[in-house]
Design a protein around this nucleic acid. Structure first.
Lengths: 211, 211
DNA sequence: GAGCAATCTTTCCGTCGTCAAGATAATTTT
DNA sequence: AAAATTATCTTGACGACGGAAAGATTGCTC
């Protein structure tokens, strides 16, 4: 198993599946989703253009696997930021949001891919599992916040999760498109930190009544 | 000028540019950005596959024009909603946000296209003008809100515009991806209304100090 | 060691975007 | 009004793409 140490075997690469995923990652980073090509991916892996079909049904299958891996890294990014933050729900939410945006800015092409449902097999088991895991990182602190304040939970149900998720998701997309940069001299991370912070303090200061 | 009334002239369609734009609109709606094809577009316009080149440099040029038109309709959608709302800045913002999302849900494929910078010529003059006009519909009420409350303007600068824009943009994308539907039995419009409403009341109730 | 399954290559097909060259219609010039 | 010019559209070609089919090679199983 593992890879054949016999140098360059024309046949039976040994771990072509992993090699293709690595090639796909670098190709995606270089050319973006639109410039992604199955044949170029095979070329980078040093293999014929029909080889990937034996490991992934088609280009969609390959990109689906790439997207699943990216979701896992998104989860990690959010998780890491939360670990550095204080334990209260608001700080945890701030960390999760910043982690979300940090991943998007760090791997823009992967981030695009993950939400391009027409390019990816949304019914894939691994992909949807990784997707759910990622968003749990954001939803758990929201639930914790509501647990602290029952009135808020009753009044707003799961609105807040959707709200914060929309916020960081939209910010990431708009910033990557270069549509918010000119609005501020702040760098992306600082701007994101303030946008999330302002939202959370507003929501947090809005616990009672008022709606 | 205008179109030749002489029925089906093989040559000199008369208004092929408009016909191609119409064909592109319907094709985009049917197949999405990924399924969009210049040849199929020409087919729908009843013209050879090389004809579009005389009116649009390439497929990117055609899609750029389509995107510009879509931005104009986005502007209209926001403008119309604001016209129906009360005149106070918060209500205007609520209307603009709902109009933004209403457009996205009504023309999802066009909405996708507008923000797919790798498929569109972002340096196109008409496109960027239409884009700026659309976002002004959202930014003007924010400025009005800050004019009412100077302290807020000083403290938050243009953060609020980025915040609200990110919110509606992210919500639209996530809802279209089917990622927020299962979180609520509410239909999209109602959910959007509540998300925006909750954000605005939180921000509005957060005028003084607190940061 | 023989058969079998998995893996990879080669070849082929239809479609794509773009280019070049030719044909036709409208416009301008003379 | 006729000729020349320009704009518009078609046809045909090219290379690149994704995918399918068939053949070659290797590793696994019995």
């Amino acid at each position: 198993m593992a890879r054949t140490p016999s140098g360059s075997n024309a046949y039976h690469h040994g771990d072509l599946r992993s090699a293709l995923l690595a090639a796909a990652d670098s190709l995606l980073e270089d050319r973006g989703v639109e410039g992604f090509t199955l044949r170029e991916c095979a070329r980078r892996a040093g293999v014929s253009h029909a080889a990937p079909a034996h490991h992934f049904k088609d280009v969609r299958g390959l990109l689906t696997a790439v997207a699943a891996g990216a979701f896992d890294r998104l989860t990690t990014s959010m998780h890491d930021r939360k670990a550095l933050a204080p334990g209260d729900p608001l700080s945890q939410l701030q960390g999760a949001g910043e982690g979300y945006i940090a991943f998007a800015l760090g791997e823009p092409q992967h981030f695009y891919l993950m939400f391009r449902c027409s390019v990816v097999n949304t019914e894939d088991e691994a992909l949807s599992a990784s997707g759910r895991a990622a968003f749990l990182e954001l939803e758990r602190p929201v639930a914790a916040l509501h647990a602290v304040d029952d009135a808020m939970a009753d009044a707003n149900g799961n609105i807040d999760a959707v709200l914060l998720w929309s916020l960081v998701h939209g910010f990431a997309h708009l910033y990557l498109d270069g549509r918010v940069g000119r609005y501020s001299e702040l760098d992306a991370a600082t701007l994101a930190e303030r946008v999330i912070g302002r939202t959370l303090t507003a929501l947090g200061g809005h616990l009672p009544a008022k709606l």
